[in-house]
Nucleic acid binder design. Sequence first.
DNA 1: TGACAATGTTACCGATCGGTACGTATACAT
DNA 2: ATGTATACGTACCGATCGGTAACATTGTCA
Lengths: 205, 205
Amino acid sequence: MPTDKNIELTISDGHESAPPKAAKKILDVAYDLFYRRGIRAIGVDEIVKRAGVTKPSLYRSFPSKDELAASYLRQYDLEYWERFDEAVAAHPGDPRAQIKAFLTRIGKRTQVADYRGCGMTNAAVEYPDHSHPARVVSEANKQELRRRLRAMAVAMGAQDPDTLGDGLLLLIEGAYISGQLFGLGGPAQAVARNADLLIEASLKK
Amino acid sequence: MPTDKNIELTISDGHESAPPKAAKKILDVAYDLFYRRGIRAIGVDEIVKRAGVTKPSLYRSFPSKDELAASYLRQYDLEYWERFDEAVAAHPGDPRAQIKAFLTRIGKRTQVADYRGCGMTNAAVEYPDHSHPARVVSEANKQELRRRLRAMAVAMGAQDPDTLGDGLLLLIEGAYISGQLFGLGGPAQAVARNADLLIEASLKK
DNA sequence: TGACAATGTTACCGATCGGTACGTATACAT
DNA sequence: ATGTATACGTACCGATCGGTAACATTGTCA
């Protein structure tokens, strides 16, 4: 049975009372620091310091730093699919437009200084060991992304939907990485255009 | 004037003599460990232990761990362009075939268990700070890759060569990353096919 | 008022981090 | 044989790593 001390995040309880719990402050700070500077680069001391709490508080809510990192990624996962579903909902029944909307949004997000790419991807690079708690979350997220893209390629009527779905995934991962590698004016701004070209070339004639 | 204690790597001096220098052993071991497990994940103690040398030996040849990491990437850079130039040389005057050969090779390399992607890309993820010695090498390598791909897109007669060159770069980076994310059977095996589709769709009609 | 749960306080643990002061061994030229 | 320079090893440094023990303080609800 997995330990899950940190699943209740008090979505704000209607009343104006309820002082922000320590666990939430810790997770918020960890989210920001882990994402911007990397998980290995951040020590627990810096997290508790910036969160205005103490180390025992962290370890009362999270069994270890690795599990805190996994919690950060679970939160990231939630917000990731929110953004994805927004793009989908904006173009009901039109998977090609859904992809285009999602990729246009990614392309825009990459065009800011100090863009840091995808937290999932970055965590997988930091932890090659497949059994690491953070990596487990990351791999699940990517499997789900692949599944959705392939399904959308089917819905688009691609000749070879698995190939197109995977091609779109490659473009997306490429955008995350080159966004942080090149900064402003990098190749990631061309992701939506290239995806649309690839889709066009992959449909049944 | 930059310090460069470690530029002479004794390419093997013709004679069978010349015992392997400590600097070379250190760099070889660091290359392997940094690439496979990540730079931040490896301490200098483990490097010197595996190299069969001692810590002062490391610091006589390399001014710091960060500079050792940069040296590792400079070596990686050399071998990277060797592989690239091999694909180019195999198809003189045919940039489309050159790209296809290079990407087919990448696609194959990704299809092994525990594939670790591109050392340059991984280092940039580990070190978001643009002034880090390792990141400097990594960014230069990627700029050069972008330059070459765009030039090849011009040579291929693309309608919008910058967009095609950038699209190819996105696919390549996507292959590096998803190769290590998905392992066997992942999307990276489809990189050459998708690149060829994208090229086809990007040529002047 | 009393009891409980959550948080804070202080101090500490062993391990590992990157890095260095300083003495020793080897090779070669004279 | 002796000087000299280069290469290497032993032993250590302070700082930080992730994590914990023991106890004091607080707010909430009954």
